[in-house]
Amino acid sequence: MAAHEQEAQQLPYARLYADSEGESHFGNEDMPLGPAEVPGAPPFIASEALSTSDVMYAGFEPGYSADEHPTSARNFCLTLSGEMELTASDGETRVFTPGSVLLMEDTTGKGHAVEFPSDELTMCALVMLSE
């Protein structure tokens, strides 16, 4: 079945956000995907375009860690290599491996702690979202 004939699909991702009390929490979300076409290419599935402002690549050496802090800007963090372990201020910990998608929205409040337990450099692409 061709992509344009498929039913709508979704891309699962994690979300890290702060509540009104400043406590950070994880949630699970799904980004809708639908048929897409580009002239000269076969049909495929894609999300709606997101408004972004910047893209930054960040590398973290094995053993790097940081205590609780809020993220500096709303962004999608895409884990490219290695392993990233985030702990929300509510105590929940999640591990992100290559291919993981995390929407970081805890720009206020207590924030999150992070560790990079991998034996290799952990590379992330940070896609800053426009407000």
Results as ranks from 00 to 15, higher is better:
106 D>N: 10
22 G>Q: 00
110 K>E: 13
45 I>S: 05
31 M>N: 06
30 D>I: 11
81 S>F: 06
3 A>G: 01
129 L>R: 01
21 E>Y: 13
87 T>K: 04
123 M>S: 05
81 S>E: 09
26 F>Y: 15
9 Q>I: 15
101 V>E: 02
30 D>V: 15
81 S>T: 15
88 A>L: 06
1 M>F: 12
9 Q>W: 13
104 M>S: 05
56 M>G: 05
30 D>A: 14
57 Y>N: 14
99 G>W: 00
10 Q>T: 11
29 E>R: 13
92 E>Y: 03
30 D>F: 15
58 A>R: 09
89 S>I: 06
7 E>V: 14
63 G>W: 05
122 T>F: 02
126 L>T: 00
92 E>C: 00
5 E>H: 07
84 M>G: 01
102 L>W: 00
95 V>R: 14
99 G>K: 06
108 T>S: 13
42 P>F: 03
110 K>S: 07
12 P>F: 01
53 S>Q: 09
42 P>Y: 02
38 V>T: 15
15 R>D: 03
12 P>D: 03
85 E>M: 12
67 D>K: 06
62 P>L: 05
102 L>T: 01
113 A>I: 04
16 L>R: 05
75 N>C: 12
117 P>A: 00
54 D>M: 11
123 M>H: 09
5 E>P: 00
94 R>A: 01
90 D>M: 06
124 C>W: 02
31 M>F: 11
6 Q>T: 15
131 E>D: 15
51 S>E: 14
11 L>R: 15
67 D>V: 06
126 L>A: 02
71 T>N: 10
24 S>E: 05
113 A>E: 06
68 E>N: 12
85 E>D: 12
109 G>L: 04
34 G>I: 00
106 D>K: 03
88 A>C: 10
54 D>R: 15
16 L>M: 10
2 A>F: 15
8 A>M: 08
31 M>S: 12
97 T>V: 11
42 P>W: 00
104 M>P: 02
86 L>A: 02
44 F>D: 01
35 P>T: 07
98 P>W: 08
43 P>Q: 05
98 P>E: 10
5 E>C: 04
30 D>M: 13
88 A>R: 05
58 A>P: 08
19 D>L: 10
65 S>K: 08
96 F>Q: 00
75 N>T: 08
129 L>E: 02
79 T>F: 03
97 T>A: 10
19 D>H: 13
120 E>P: 00
98 P>M: 04
124 C>A: 11
107 T>G: 00
96 F>C: 07
18 A>Q: 02
122 T>I: 06
74 R>A: 05
50 L>N: 07
100 S>G: 02
91 G>S: 04
66 A>Y: 11
96 F>L: 13
123 M>I: 11
64 Y>R: 14
8 A>F: 07
69 H>K: 05
33 L>S: 02
29 E>C: 09
63 G>N: 06
26 F>C: 03
75 N>W: 04
79 T>C: 12
23 E>F: 06
127 V>P: 00
35 P>Y: 00
20 S>G: 13
25 H>L: 08
2 A>C: 13
110 K>R: 13
69 H>G: 13
112 H>Y: 00
95 V>M: 07
1 M>S: 12
105 E>N: 08
79 T>H: 02
124 C>H: 01
105 E>C: 10
66 A>Q: 11
77 C>L: 07
130 S>Q: 12
131 E>I: 11
60 F>Y: 15
45 I>N: 08
72 S>I: 09
10 Q>S: 10
